[in-house]
Every structure is written in C-alpha cells, then in structure tokens.
Design a protein around this nucleic acid. Sequence first.
DNA 1: TGGATTGACATACGTCGCGTATGTTTTTAT
DNA 2: ATAAAAACATACGCGACGTATGTCAATCCA
Lengths: 201, 201
Amino acid sequence: MTRKTRQEMLTETRAKLVSAARQAFGTIGYADTSMDDLTASVGLTRGALYHHFGDKKGLLAEVVKQIDAEMDEKLATISTEAENAWEGFVCRCRAYLAMALEPEIQRIVLRDAPSILGNAYWQSSQSQCLATMAETLRQLMEDGMIVKTDHEALARLLNGGLADTAFWLANSDAPEADLSKALQSLTALLNGLLLTKEPLK
Amino acid sequence: MTRKTRQEMLTETRAKLVSAARQAFGTIGYADTSMDDLTASVGLTRGALYHHFGDKKGLLAEVVKQIDAEMDEKLATISTEAENAWEGFVCRCRAYLAMALEPEIQRIVLRDAPSILGNAYWQSSQSQCLATMAETLRQLMEDGMIVKTDHEALARLLNGGLADTAFWLANSDAPEADLSKALQSLTALLNGLLLTKEPLK
DNA sequence: TGGATTGACATACGTCGCGTATGTTTTTAT
DNA sequence: ATAAAAACATACGCGACGTATGTCAATCCA
C-alpha cells in the first residue's frame, strides 16, 4: 500500500499547490502573489514548486488549464441541454458571458494569462472552450442554419467579444441593467448570423 | 528665453521616457523591462522616472494613453474618408483589426495593459477608440441602418472580438490566409446587423 | 540683482522575490 | 540489500522596485 501512498502524496501536493495558486491568483493576482508565501501556506517551500512546475509561469499554466477544462465541461452540458443546436449555441454564449463575469476567471484566464503566458498559449487547441465553440459553429454552418464563413475566425470574434463584454460588465455601475443590455446586443448579433426567416427573440 | 528652456527640457524629458518605454514595452514587454536600463538608455536615472510618473505603472499608463489617442485619430480619418456611414464603420473595423496586428499595440495595449492597469482603466471613456466606436454605432442605429440595441454593449462585443481575432492572426501559421478568413467572417457578422435588404459583399 | 524657494533630477539604501544549485530523505527497482 | 531516482528542503546570488535623501539649477520676489 506504500505504492499508492506515494502517488497519493504526489497528486495531493500538486493539487494543494494548484488550489492555493488558483485562490491567490484569482484574488490578489499573479504579479502580487509571492511563491514563498504561496508554498508556505500549504506547508511546503519553493523547492516543491519548482520541482513540479518548473517556474511560476508553469504553475499559472496549470491553473489555467484546470479552469479552462472546467469551463468547457460546464458549457458542454449547458449547450446539450437545449432543444436544438441553435438554442444550445445561444445558451452557450450566454453561459460563457456569465462565467466570464466571475472574478477568478476574469483575473486569471482573461487578464493575467494572456499577458504572462502569451497569446500563443491560446493558439489552436490549447483552449478547449474556443475549440468547442468553433466546432459548434462548423456544425451549424454545415446544417445550413447560419451563414457560411470560416468557423475558427467567427469563434474568435464571438468569444473575444464576450470576454471583453464581461470586463465591461465587471466594472459597471449598474451591473444588472448593463447585463441585460449586453444580452440584448448579443442576441441581435447572433440573430444576424441566422439564415432562417424567423429569428427567435 | 530661459523660461522656455525650462519647459522644453521638462517636456523633452517626459517625451524621451515615454518614447523609450513605448519601444521597450512593445518589444521585450512590460515585465521584462528594467527601469534602470530604461532610464539609462536616455541618459537619466530612475529618479526622473518616479518624479514624473510616480511608478512603473504610471509610465505604462502614459504610453497607453498616447497610443490610444493615436489609434483613435487614425481610425477617425479612415472612417470619415468612406462614402457613407456604414462603409465608414466597416472600414473602421477592418482598420482596427489591422492596427491590432501591430506587435506594439498588441503587446502594450491589448495584453499587458489590462493585466497591469486593470480593466477599470478601459472603463467608460478611458479608451477613446471604444468611445468613438460606440458613438458611431449609435448614429447608425439612429439612422435606421442597423438593428437597434445598446450601442455601448455592441461596441464592446465587436471591439473585443476584433482584438481577440488579432491575437489569433498574430500567431497564425498562415497569416495572409487567416486574415482573409477573419475579414470574411467579420463581414458576415457585420452584415447581420444591417437592416437593408442588400448587404454589400 | 541677489537671496530664498521650488522644481527636476541623481544617489544611496533597504527589501523582496525569483531562479538555481545543492543537499537530504524516502521510495522504487533489481 | 543496495543503487538509483523521485520529492522535496535549504542556501545563495542576483536583479528590480520603491523610497528617502541630497544636489544643482532655474525661477521668483524684494
């Protein structure tokens, strides 16, 4: 049973570090998080950190990876619960906007990560969320529901717009009012892609 | 004439620091730019830096402010050169995408600034570019050319999408091909907003 | 016009945080 | 059972930021 203990300790250590980092990065931010304090808060030293993740950026990358996977999973369940593909896509966009409003996601994934890890990190299939959205769009085009263009580029346009809108909403003086405005504009934008004569309200 | 000399030295010192910072931030990035090296490169020390801009962030804010003003000015001339308001808006979006592809803008304004200065910096009328775009949309709505929604939210959606698309293009393996894809998808998205029966190709 | 004052820097210093290099202990492999 | 490797801890050097203080020239005022 010692064998299992070894592995458990291993993964537990990694999990503790990632969890603590996620908490710290999401609140005080990446730059202001001391690796000394971070590791000490879970009863370790920087030695463990650099052994497992290479450097501070490596830890951030791991946190981002975890969050991205969670987001993609949640969005997947949401979009599949809808009655049809188009509804699912619209719900997915709205859900993404809601998630992008969470301080943790906003700070870590949308603000610090691009600056620290570089945009190359989001390239191709690095971001599950983005890849899934592009695939969904491709399907909708194939089914003739929306206008035919490059699905990857369109996914970027929509995804980036939602993220930026979330930034706007996060600092809004009237969050609930601006949120409804955002959802309204989003609907207008998405309906513009529809090929059917009767867009849903 | 000594009076003028005093002022000239003042503004010249600030200009030199901002210029050097813009160069350094745009190439090696904000985090990797040493204020010692930066000030030394223009024959000064950190004393001058902290005297004029308070801290490192203050210098970045000044650089961002300058770039944003330049972008807004360029975009303004571009959009007014078009034959009609809608054409002007479309050209403006395309021009913004092109500008967002410049490494300096991408690195400083779109990547580092949000992380370092926070999103609050872009709030309301902090970003001239964004404010102008929102106003343009408002006009188009008032003229009945595009669908009526909240112009500010729509500006966010489009602006953010363009910025994110620029990130994608910057790391593309086939930049020219992907750029045409992006422009095509952008056209599709914008045409969806049009209320007229005959969208332009 | 000459001394006082303010502004525009330079210099010196302390502190913090990262990364690396080097142990040390425990587990795994043979 | 011993060698090897993993999983950390410890110690060190280095650079960078911010602040506190000093200095010199320009401006202002009597």
